[in-house]
Computed example of a mutant assay.
Amino acid sequence: MRLIETFQTADFIDTLASLAVAFVLGTLIGAERQYRLRTAGLRTNVLVAIGAAAFVDLAMHLAGPDGATRVIAYVVSGIGFLGAGVIMKEGTNVRGLNTAATLWSSAAVGACAGADLAAQAVALTMFVLAGNTLLRPLVNAINRSPLDEKSSEVDYDVKVTADAPAMADVRDLLVEKLEAANYPVGDVEVVDRANGAAEIVARLTRTAVDPKELDVVVADMERQAGVRHATWEASTRD
């Protein structure tokens, strides 16, 4: 049989090592996304990393580095289509950009693993995890920084992630607490998330807020039963 004739133990072990590295590193990236309840979670990131590693490893064995280079170019463009599937436009808001970028990064990790660049794959994984975790406090600080309402139109959104069964009660309680703090709610949107969760987004009608007052409301909401996470952010329309 042709299969037996072409089987090379060293090549097979090399492929297993590449796939194992892609699997472990893809798991690390995907676990963080799963914890954040993102659309593309653990399994998606693992499969993207493994798939990229498999294609690049196959090209390395069949056509050498030149063939792998061509395959990597196709992987980059192919993951672009996959990432587009997780990007959603909801009114004036666009969601999923970070998730799509993470999928792209997972493919890069897999490509490094498939090209036998394990150390580079590990380093890239650390940078991806740092971007998705260590930069979150900085992002929140920037989003909460005072904006010049005179020079730009500003929207203030209070976001609460809660268990789906408690969603209705949490939504009513959020509106009640915001109005009690003299922050009328203009619109409330509920977005389904993974693992039986829902995100409640309450947009305020006030043109300016006191960050300390919203921090109190958010902290109070996080103590409520069924609430997983609560935060608020400001964004401009220009």
Rank of each mutant, 00 (worst) to 15 (best):
I72A: 15
N182D: 15
R70T: 05
P211R: 12
I72L: 14
A118T: 10
P65T: 13
L134N: 02
I13C: 04
L47Y: 07
Q8V: 04
A162K: 09
R43G: 14
D148L: 11
Y183P: 02
N195Y: 15
G196V: 11
V218K: 10
S145H: 08
L103R: 04
L19G: 02
N93G: 03
F55R: 03
I4V: 10
F55N: 04
E222A: 10
A194F: 07
T205G: 11
R228G: 01
T69F: 13
P211A: 01
N140C: 13
L134T: 00
L97F: 06
K212H: 08
M1H: 12
A164G: 02
T39P: 10
A68E: 06
G110L: 05
Q120C: 06
A115M: 05
G26F: 03
T9M: 14
K159E: 07
L103Q: 13
A84S: 12
G186D: 10
F12N: 01
L174F: 04
A202H: 11
G80E: 06
D169I: 00
L47T: 05
V201Y: 00
V160P: 00
V188K: 00
P65Q: 10
E233S: 04
A230Q: 01
V139P: 02
A121D: 08
A219H: 14
S18I: 02
S152L: 15
I87S: 10
E32D: 15
L147N: 01
E233G: 10
V217L: 14
E153H: 12
S145F: 14
V218A: 11
N143I: 06
R193V: 05
R237Y: 09
T125S: 14
E222Q: 08
L103W: 01
